[in-house]
Every structure is written in structure tokens, then in C-alpha cells.
Design a protein around this nucleic acid. Structure first.
Lengths: 208, 208
DNA sequence: AGACTAAACGGACCGCAGTCCGGTTTCTAT
DNA sequence: ATAGAAACCGGACTGCGGTCCGTTTAGTCT
């Protein structure tokens, strides 16, 4: 009764079969090509499958749904962005004062969200991804707010600061109300300063 | 050459034909019944058309799309809510101090949005309606912020305060993060006070 | 009343997201 | 090497949103 890896041992999900891995890469590549060449709305499941030379069912096995596929496409830039926040150059990365980091965070997030707006919309609320992305950003803002000595319900305060950076709001402002991006960025700076200032009043001891 | 109303005279769009009006009412009624009885996702265009005893094309002529139909359903409660804000009892309606009105506004909006969450999601960004609803709320908040002496980019500040009340944020908080509603309401109160306080320091200069 | 026009009607039709199941391929153990 | 099982593959199929166009009907003008 010799066994090599018969016990899962909580080592994570079983590894991917080689053909499955090859197909996933082909599908991501096909989808990326379609996005770059024809726009997001041209990314139909049949088109991706055909271009990758696989059947439709395969697309759905690898990526739960169309939204899941979009989320996978977003994942690349999202990961890069998280790396820039965690270990990139200041002021977005570590090394700058908390307030500068927070403002850099906002500007960066506005730009990235607008850049990938169509993709984000197409990804919708694709469960896992949306939650992971949100929770990373929320965690970072919570951390910076705490550093700045903000009291109160910091988790929800962080969400409230993140909310105006959501794509649905940004697109409303830029596409419909024709507000220039730098004005949106300045307004977010102002918002953040107001929120933080309430706990940093001179005379009312704040946090270093 | 006698004419009764031959000249449009900018009197708005031409009136609705009687059968069209009858059908629109039947469709709205059918859709409402379906929502109440089977939930929003059961409101399929064919089902609504069949229940109203009309063809599918008729549904699309009256309400541009499925989202448009949902927006029309939403319109009833939305109108009632706007009336309550404009001329209802204080503190939501006029008569209370601006800060109290603003806080009442937030609580009311949170409750209404959560109550009609499924419908709002189904209505999506149905152009006209979404913009009308947003712009009414934004206008009201701009007005109250101005009353409270807030300086700076009041239009965008109003949007930023409205953003955490959007259904996408509220549902993330209540459904996924399991945050109780009254905590969300308190956090919004706090947010508003912080934003307003930055301009309301008596004897202290405003922001640098 | 009768004819005329513009609008409304209705259901066949299309494209795409998502499901299902029988056949095929990869991996492992003997 | 080989047999067996688990995972994977593919494409036919369903349901729904949205469009189209020939037909019908409500208002209007004479």
C-alpha cells in the first residue's frame, strides 16, 4: 500500500494537468488579443474558445463565467499594482509619510481604474476577484488611516474613502459629467485631508 | 386651414395613444406582480409580455430595455422619496437644521437603497433614470453642504459623500462583510461630520 | 362617415451566456 | 508497459435579451 501523494495533506488544490495548463494559457492569450484588437465587447466566449482552438466548455471549466474570465485578465495588472503598493518606489510604496502615501494611492487607483474601466465593468462582481481586490485596497487604507491617527470606525471609513474611487463613480464623473481627471484627484485629496484632519486638530492630541 | 394642435410649439413630445397607455399600465402591473410574487430574476421580458397579454416588441417600445423596465418600476418609490425630501416632514424634509437633514438623508437613502437593492442592480446604469436619481440626490447634498458653510469643490464632495451609499458598496458591506446596517449609518454620520467640521472651526482658519 | 397616415403591435428571428453529457487524454499504480 | 480512474475536452442545446418587419389600429382631415 505505498502511496506518493495520496493524502491531500492540505497542500492546496491538486496540481493542474498539463493539457489543462496549456489550454488556460492559450485562452488567456486569445482573450488578451481580442481585448487589444477588438475591444472588450468582442470578447465573446465562443470567439475566445475558437481563437484558442478549444471548445466552449473548456472556457467555462477554466474560468467560471465570462466575468471570471475578465477577472483573470484583470488579475495581471492588479497583481502588479499591489506589488507597487507593497514594495514599489515611494510615495506609492513604502518610505514616504503616511499622508503622502495615501494621496499617491488615490491618484494611482483613479488612473488604474479608469484605464481598465471596460474590463472592470465586464468583470462585474465576480465574487472572489472583486472581494480580493477590494479587501487589499481596504486593508491598505485602513493601515494608513491608523498610521495617521484616525479614530472611529476605521474599517468603514476606509470603505467610504474607497467608494468614490469605484469605477461606477469615476465613469459617471468623467464620461457623463465631463469632469477632468485632475479635478477628481484634487477633490479626493481634499476629502482625505478633511477626514484625517478631524483627528489631528492642534490642541486635541493626535497620534504621531 | 384651421388647426387645433398642428403646431408642436415645443409642448413636449406628442401625447401617447390610448392603447399604448393601456398597454404600458398593463406591463407595469404585470412586472410589479412578477417582482412581488417571484422575485426580480423572474422578470423576464417574455414573461412580462405574456402576462400583460401583449407581444414582446411592445415591451421594448415602451421601456427601451430590461434595465429600462426596472428603472420604470423603481421610479414610483424614487418619486415618493424625492417628494419626502423636498416637502415631507422634518428632519428629512425642510424645517430641520441642515446637519440634521443631511444625516436623515443618509439614513433614509441607505434604507431605501437596501430595500430596493435587487431592483437597482437589475436597473443597472439605465442612462436617464440613473442620472436623474443621482443628480437629484447630488443636488440636495450640494445644497445642504453649502448651507453648512462647506468650501472647496462642493459638487465632487457631494458625490464623494454619496458614493458610500451606492448599492454596490452597501451590499458588499451587508451581504459579504456582514456589517449591521446601523453601524453603516453611524459611520456615515461620522464621515459627514468630519467633512463638514473642516470648514466649521469657529475662530480657526480654514484649510491651508 | 370614410379615407389616410403615423404610430403601435406582435411574434419570428438572432447572438450570446451558460449547461450537459458522451468521448478522449493524462496521470498513477501495478 | 498497461489498465484503470479521474480529469478534461468539445460541441450540441437551452433560455433570455434584443431586433426586425409585415400587419393592425388609433387618431385626423375632408
Amino acid at each position: 500500500m505505498s502511496e506518493h501523494r495520496s493524502l491531500p495533506l492540505l497542500g492546496g488544490p491538486p496540481p493542474e494537468r498539463s493539457d489543462a495548463a496549456r489550454n488556460r494559457e492559450a485562452l488567456l492569450r486569445a482573450a488578451t488579443d481580442l481585448v487589444d484588437h477588438c475591444g472588450v465587447e468582442a470578447v465573446t466566449m465562443d470567439a475566445v474558445a475558437a481563437r484558442a482552438g478549444v471548445g466552449k466548455g473548456t472556457v467555462y471549466r477554466r474560468f467560471e463565467s465570462r466575468e471570471g474570465l475578465m477577472a483573470a485578465l484583470l488579475n495581471h495588472s492588479e497583481t502588479a499594482w499591489q506589488a507597487a503598493v507593497l514594495s514599489g518606489p515611494a510615495p506609492l510604496g513604502p518610505g514616504a509619510p503616511a499622508m503622502e502615501r495615501l494621496l499617491a494611492f488615490g491618484r494611482s487607483r483613479i488612473e488604474t481604474n479608469l484605464k481598465h474601466g471596460d474590463l472592470i465593468n465586464a468583470a462585474g462582481h465576480s465574487g472572489a476577484r472583486a472581494y480580493a481586490a477590494m479587501s487589499f485596497a481596504a486593508m491598505h487604507v485602513r493601515y494608513l488611516l491608523t498610521q495617521l491617527g484616525v479614530r472611529g470606525d476605521v474599517p468603514i471609513l476606509a470603505t467610504s474613502l474607497l467608494a468614490p474611487l469605484e469605477i461606477v463613480i469615476l465613469q459617471q464623473q468623467t464620461h457623463i459629467e465631463q469632469i477632468p481627471v485632475d479635478r477628481i484627484e484634487r477633490a479626493w485629496d481634499d476629502l482625505v485631508r478633511r477626514v484625517v484632519a478631524a483627528d489631528a486638530q492642534p490642541g486635541a492630541p493626535g497620534r504621531p
